[in-house]
């Protein structure tokens, strides 16, 4: 049993062995992978579809994938994009996305890509909480 701030939750036996940060890292690199590692198939699939869907739609809308941080807004955008893990690396390697935003939908696409990264970070942290027993 692990005591948290307001409640006590049972920790699954399989969650007590192995590298504790593996679901966090896997979840960051590949959306939903952290939950798959913990055998939360349904949750992992829904998270993967949502995050991958947002990222792919952002790319399809010719959203901008931030490559450098020349001002504070670009820095924040880059931080959000990096949350996509391997998706960001692959998109940079393949030259996906637009360099400059020229139409309104491309601006939406840029936000989709950034928010997909932020949601992926939330998802990875959730997998870590499941792994440590902080969440059921």
């Amino acid at each position: 049993m692990v005591a948290t701030e307001n409640k006590t939750v049972a920790v699954a036996p399989e969650a007590q062995s192995g590298f504790v940060y593996l679901p966090l890292i896997a979840g960051w690199l590949v959306p939903g992978a952290g939950h798959f590692l913990l055998r939360k198939w349904g949750r992992g699939a829904l998270l993967a579809v949502s995050i991958l869907g947002m990222f792919v739609l952002g790319i399809a809308m010719q959203g901008k994938v931030y490559a450098n941080a020349h001002d504070i807004l670009a820095m924040l955008g880059l931080a959000g994009d990096l949350g996509n893990g391997l998706l960001y690396v692959v998109s940079r390697m393949m030259g996906l996305g637009a360099d400059t935003v020229q139409v309104t939908t491309a601006d939406y696409g840029t936000r989709f890509i950034v928010v997909a990264g932020l949601l992926n970070v939330i998802s990875a942290v959730d997998a870590h909480n499941l792994r440590t027993g902080r969440k059921i």
Partner: peptide, 22 residues
């Protein structure tokens, strides 16, 4: 892809809500 503003809002809301809910 050129979705309408409303379609963009709905898709964004669906994806974000799924992650928030879970």
């Amino acid at each position: 892809l050129h979705p309408s503003h409303f379609a963009s809002v709905v898709v964004f809301a669906i994806c974000a809500s799924v992650v928030f809910g879970i």
